[in-house]
Amino acid sequence: MSTPLTSFFSAGRKRPSRAIMPQVTSLVDMMTILLVFLLKSFSAEGNIMTPSQDLVLPLSNAKDPPRTALMVEVTSSAVMVEGKVVVTMDDIVATDSLVVPRLFDWLSGMAVTFKDPETRHEAVIQCDKNCDFKYLKKVMATCARASFSNFTLLVMQKG
């Protein structure tokens, strides 16, 4: 014989005591794949150099990691040194000589600030893949005249 009260408690006891667990196996599978992919693309030393947003680097099979040095960016519209626009591409086109005077003055000023003996003559050139070599040649010649005669060209790794 059960009273309404006892039937209430017994009904309560019959209810499952555990909380409803959502099915997380598929989520864990997905997370595991994501984790493996991210660990694979993880670089312990990080990215020393960030390619400029204004240019598209050419693809290459080169594997040498970049080093910190003077950064010269040659975009389709301007030449930048350490992120600052120094000369526009129109100025470079208009210059007849190999050495671009305004860029040379700027680079000569930068050369004084570079004290590290290992990188003081080094320049990393980021150049847009569609840039004509005759303009790049002027930039390189100006860099070389301003004592930055060791060049490295920044490229995007294939694959």
């Binding site: 991210l38 693309s41 993880f42 670089s43 990080g46 990215n47 150099m49 390619p51 680097l57 290459s60 080169a62 594997k63 040498d64 990691p65 970049p66 080093r67 990393v124 390189m140 070389a144 005669s149 060049f151 490295t152 060209l153 920044l154 490229v155 995007m156 790794q157």
Partner: peptide, 14 residues
């Protein structure tokens, strides 16, 4: 921390 676009350098000699 992921680096999706890997950059490299080409040593150029004059």
């Amino acid at each position: 921390m992921a680096v999706f676009a890997h950059v490299a350098v080409i040593e150029v000699n004059l």
